[in-house]
Write a protein that binds this DNA or RNA. Structure first.
Length: 407
RNA sequence: GUGGGUAUAGCUCAGUUGGUUAGAGCGCAGGAUUGUGGCUCCUGAGGCCGAGGGUUCAAAUCCCUUUACCCACCCCA
């Protein structure tokens, strides 16, 4: 709703401009996808898939789901249209609503909007760095303060399995201390125990083996390289070895931008690298890196620093029916270019119309009534200096246009 | 899915141990010199007290049910 909607569009425009500057192109995504797509990409054991999706059957008994996130749809589109053949590297972004069946609370809604982007075909850690710096630039451009970048590497198929077994062995010894969820997830994804919020789990996991120590050479160099580039770019970050994302497709780099001001739902943007997903969804093996920003959460941080709409420039004040008829075409003509005039269609007193003009914050008020008609000139009042000048009735339109362009 | 909270004027909220025409501030409308705004003053409009049921001589107030929203757990953007 206004005035929020104006601020939203302003922020969205900034996002589009920034990303298009970095060579991203917009992808308009399907809202509805086969349920299986999400089960396969996000992971069958994740909470999103287990209990947070809006899933239903269509008339042919196919199971469809309102998308809970964007990456899976982007990857499907990437594969379906063979984007990888058109150009080696593809940079795509999207904007739109996502749906998750959760209990709403501050910063969490069942229908929420994401600004997201994905890069396909680039393995280099330079890509990770470019994207992260770009995000930092975005927050900076919006004067958003207090966001922290948390960073981790989850390894790849070469080193993660070994680490997973290692961690599992560690957790097995402490099974009794873990919460039900963690115990249940042990088989599929023991890593999740690392960022469980349950105090008992936290304690049990305090001395758990860390993935950083178990990375293979390739992953280690990737991570170190990324960190170095971030430092060179002056982007502050902290490594959080226990950062594990709730989506199964991530490999190597994962990150979250956290904001303290958001309450419990403090992740304003998150993402990472997913080098295996394209292939798993039936495409050619393609490395990829992506992120999503929670639009609503971002807007909570942006506050009032983004200016809402500008005030109209001049209030047209007609006194009497004839004056209204005379000013109406001018009103239409001037607003055709930009929103510069206001005009009340009701017969109101000069006093109340001026009051309204003041509230609207206009710079000029143009008064036309019986007196003006008899003199052939309208009164133009500068609302700040209270100076009044006269303008011939037959050149009102161009005179106002000149005034507008002078400012 | 679990727990807590709120619901009264357009907005933010008061409303005592149940008591008769339900209040304030802000906003809105009109007026205080006939055709000149901001400040001030006066006046006015606007409420089925979220919905449904119950207790009572009497319910915004107590009880039950329900809906919506909020906050937290969880999860994530």
């Amino acid at each position: 709703m206004p005035p929020e909607s104006f601020r939203w569009r302003l922020v969205e425009d900034k996002f589009r401009n920034l990303l298009e500057g970095y060579g991203f192109a917009e992808l308009r995504l399907a809202l509805l996808e086969p349920t299986e797509l999400f089960a396969r990409s996000i992971g069958g054991e994740t909470d999103i898939v287990e209990k947070e999706m809006y899933t239903f059957l269509d008339r042919s008994d196919r199971s469809l789901t309102l998308r809970p996130e964007g990456t899976a749809s982007v990857v499907r589109a990437y594969n379906q249209y063979s984007l990888g053949k058109i150009s080696e590297i593809n940079k795509l972004y999207y904007v739109g609503p996502m749906f998750r069946y959760e209990r709403p609370q501050k910063g969490r809604y069942r229908q929420f909007n994401q600004l997201g982007a994905e890069v396909f075909g680039e393995t280099s850690f330079y890509q990770d760095a470019e994207t992260l710096v770009m995000l930092a630039q975005f927050f900076h451009a919006l004067s958003v303060k207090g966001v922290e970048l948390h960073l981790n590497s989850l390894g790849c198929e070469a080193c993660r399995p070994a680490f997973r077994d290692h961690l599992k062995a560690y957790l097995d010894e402490r099974q009794e201390a873990l919460c039900g969820d963690c115990r249940r997830r042990m088989a599929e994804n023991p890593l999740r125990a690392l960022d469980c919020k349950n105090p008992q789990c936290r304690e049990a996991v305090a001395d758990a083996p860390l993935i950083n120590d178990a990375l293979c050479d390739g992953c280690r160099q990737h991570f170190i390289g990324l960190c170095g580039l971030l430092e060179d770019a002056g982007v502050d970050y902290q490594v959080n070895p226990k950062l594990v994302r709730g989506l199964d497709y991530y490999t190597r780099t994962t990150f979250e931008f956290l904001a303290g001001d958001l309450g419990a739902q403090n992740a304003v943007a998150a993402g990472g690298r997913y080098d295996r997903l394209v292939e798993e969804l039936g495409g050619k093996a393609t490395p990829a890196f992506g992120f999503a920003i929670g639009f609503e959460r971002l807007m909570m941080l942006v506050g009032s620093s983004v200016t809402p709409l500008a005030s109209p420039f001049v209030a047209l004040i007609p006194l009497g029916e004839e004056a209204l008829r005379r000013l109406f075409p001018i009103h239409l003509e001037l607003n055709c270019q930009a929103a510069v005039t206001t005009l009340s269609f009701q017969q109101k007193s000069l006093k109340s119309q001026l009051k309204k003009a003041d509230k609207d914050g206009v710079t000029y008020a143009l008064i036309v009534g019986p007196d003006e008609f008899s003199q052939g000139e309208a009164i133009c009042r500068n609302m700040r200096t209270k100076e009044q000048t006269k303008i011939p009735l037959n050149r009102l339109g161009e005179a106002l246009r000149e005034l507008y362009h002078e400012c």
